[in-house]
Computed example of a mutant assay.
Amino acid sequence: MTRPKKTGEPVLAVRAVRTQQADKPVYAFFMAGADILKIAEISRVHRDGDGSLHGFQRKGIKSHVQAITDFLDQGPVIFPNAIILAIAPSARFVQSRGERPEGDLRICEAGTLRIPMPTDGAKCAWIVDGQQRSLALSQAQNKAYPVPVVAFVSEELSVHREQFILVNKARPLDPRLINELLPELDVVFPRDLSLRKIPSQLVHLLQSSHDSPFKGLIKRISEDSSEAVVTDTTLLKAIRGSINSTLGALAPYKASRGTPADVDAMFRVLVGFWCAARDVFPDAWGRPPTDSRLMHSAGIAAMSVLMDRVMSRAAPGVDLRQHAAEALMRIAPHCRWTAGRWNELQRDWNDIQNVSKDVRMLAGQLIRLDHAHAFSKVA
C-alpha cells in the first residue's frame, strides 16, 4: 500500500472517496490501524512559557487504551468506529477514470488518496477524534486490522479544536478540557457550549492576567503547577451562577437582546472582590485547601455568594476593591479560614467540606455576618 511518488517521496496510497463540506475536501477510506500513528500526530493540550495554549487532546488514558487493545486481541471483532483526521493539503487525490454507475447521486467521487509519509519527523495529519483507539490499534497483535478513517483538509489549529469539541461534547469527556479550549475559539457553538464560553474566558483571565489575585493559582488540565490550589471548575460554577442569577453581581453585564456581554466589566468586579479577599485575609490566601478553607472549593463557593451581595450594592464609579475590602474587614474578625471554630455553625474550620449542605451553611453565615455589620465603621 506504500509506494513512492515520482519525486521519490514515500507516500501511503489508499482507495478513497471524496466529497466537499464547507468548501473543504473530505475523504473516507480504510487503512491498517497500525499505520495511523505513522502519518498522524496526537496534538496534546499544553501551555508554553508565555502561557499560550497549544494542542487540544487530553492525556492518553492507559487503562482505556489497554481495554481497547485487549478487545482487539481477543479474536475476530467488529470495530467500525471511524478515526477522524485533519490532513494537510499536501495529500493528493486522483479521481478514478470510467463512467459513473446508473443512479449515482454524484455527491462523491472515487479515486486514490496519496498521503505523504514523514521523512523528517513532521507528519501531515492530526488526530481529531480517536486517539485512544489509534494508540490501541498500534499496540494490537493484528497490525493489518482495517479501520475506517474520515479526513478533512485543514492545517488550521482552530478548525481542529472546533471539530474536536463538537465531536466530543456528547461523549464522556472531561468538561474541564472543553471549558479550557472554548475561549480559544471564535466560532458559533450550540447553545449549551455558548453559555459556557464566557465563564471559561473569565477563568482564563483570572489565571493569566497580572491584575488577578488568582494568577498562577488555578488548577487546569493544560498546566501542572505545584502553586495551583484552586480548582477551575469551582470558579467556573461560581461565575456561571453569578451571571445567571437575577441578584448576581455579574448579571447586569450579561448579553441581552442587541447587546453583547461586557466581559471586561465582569472581570473588574471579580478582580475587585477577590483582590480585597487577598488583602483582608493574607494568611489564608494562596495556601493549599488543606491549610486554608478560603482556598477550598467550599470557601470559594461560599465567598462567591457573598460577592454577589457585596458587589451588587457598590455605587457606580466606586473603587470596587476598596468597597469590597471595607465589607470584608467588617466580618474578618468572625471568620475562621485557617484555625479556630465557627461558633455559630458549631464547626471547626477544617470540618467544612465541599458538599452542598456545608456550602449553603457557610454562605449563609457569611451573609448573616455581612448583614449584621454592613453599616458599622471599619477601624
Rank of each mutant, 00 (worst) to 15 (best):
M1L: 13
P4I: 05
K6T: 13
R18F: 00
R18A: 12
T19I: 01
A22G: 07
V26M: 02
A28Y: 10
A34V: 03
I42K: 02
V45P: 03
R47Q: 15
R47K: 15
S52A: 14
S52V: 14
H54E: 07
H54L: 08
H54T: 05
K59N: 14
I61D: 14
Q66E: 15
I68P: 00
L72E: 05
G98C: 08
E102D: 10
E102Y: 10
G103Y: 04
R106S: 13
I107M: 13
T112N: 06
P118Q: 03
T119D: 07
A122V: 14
C124P: 03
D129H: 01
R133N: 07
L135E: 12
S138P: 06
A140V: 06
N142K: 12
A144M: 10
A151G: 04
E162P: 05
A170I: 05
D174A: 13
I178Q: 03
E180L: 09
L181W: 03
E184N: 10
F189I: 03
P190C: 09
D192P: 08
K197R: 15
S200K: 06
V203K: 04
S209M: 07
D211N: 13
S212R: 06
F214T: 00
F214L: 03
A251M: 01
Y253E: 06
K254C: 09
K254M: 08
S256R: 14
S256L: 10
P260R: 10
A265I: 01
G272K: 03
R287F: 11
R287M: 15
T290K: 12
L294D: 06
S297C: 04
G299V: 07
S304P: 01
S304E: 04
M311L: 09
G317M: 07
L320H: 02
R321Q: 15
I331T: 02
D351Q: 14
I352Q: 00
S356A: 15
M361E: 07
Q365I: 00
F375S: 13
